[in-house]
Amino acid sequence: MTLTSPNPNLAEPAIPGWQRTLRKLLQPVILLGPSGLWLLLLLVFPTLLILELSLIPGARLGNPPGPYGIGNYIEIFKPVYLQVIWRSLYFALGTTLFCLLLGFPVAYWIALKAPSRWRNLLLVGFILPLWTSSLLRAYAWITILRPSGLLNSLLGFFGLPGQEWLNRTPAVFIGMTYSYLPYMVLILYASLEKLDRRLLEAASDLGATQQQSFWRVTVPQTMPGIAAGGLLVLIATLGDFAVPELLGGASSMTVSRLIYNQFLGATRNWGLGSSISMILILGVSISIALLLKYGDRDAI
């Protein structure tokens, strides 16, 4: 506002002062109102609702709600639930690591090495899998990984021993990494593309080999992107139960599936489901807060 019309008296001579004040007061309401309402209705309110539910031990649809308490949170510390949380974290952290290891070279190559006119095409090509349903992709992996599937046919063709990956942890990592790699690549690409190449020249000028430049300049400079991509994949994989369930076999219970079961499974223990949700929301919020703090310090 002030930038475009540095002298409001000149720009709007006819408007009396009180109207301008009113306008100033109304402006944030008008600008932020719609999205604020949206956030309030679909984010803040549901979260508060879940918070309240989580504080009613054994809250069940159809039961008269009991007194408030933290029983639901104590329940989470049962080994059976801790194990599920641990497994989810294992899946999520592993997938994040794989996405990072596979995604960084790709993003690096597209952003810094590939001919610039091919970049968009390469990116589109890379995110193409996102256009299909993640379920379809999981089923495709079943076809590839099943004992008589494509992978083992290929291995057999080259005289290599067949692999039994389906319904075990490797399949979960393969499927989830495949699903979330494009997100990682996109975010890393955005970060690498902004990388000031003069910094690489400066490093080289000061005696750094390509490898040294990479570790001492490129990686630290793109750390916000790495953190953002990692966090996005981490959160997304924590919330994904379809892929683990389809590919992970009999021992693929994840936190999100557990929550689902509490809400729509046979027990319908909404209280416990809500408390696990709250723990998940809390964990994710803390990671985001850390990211913001960390990212801020690194902002140049």
């Binding site: 000031d196 020249e201 400066a202 490093a203 080289s204 000028d205 000061l206 080999t209 630290p220």
Partner: peptide
């Protein structure tokens, strides 16, 4: 001879200081 092997050092136009250090 790559830049990192040359006995020269550059002061860049926009300084190109490493922001993370």
């Amino acid at each position: 001879v790559p830049p990192y092997k040359r006995p020269v050092n550059t002061v860049f136009q926009s300084y190109a200081l490493f922001g993370h250090m």
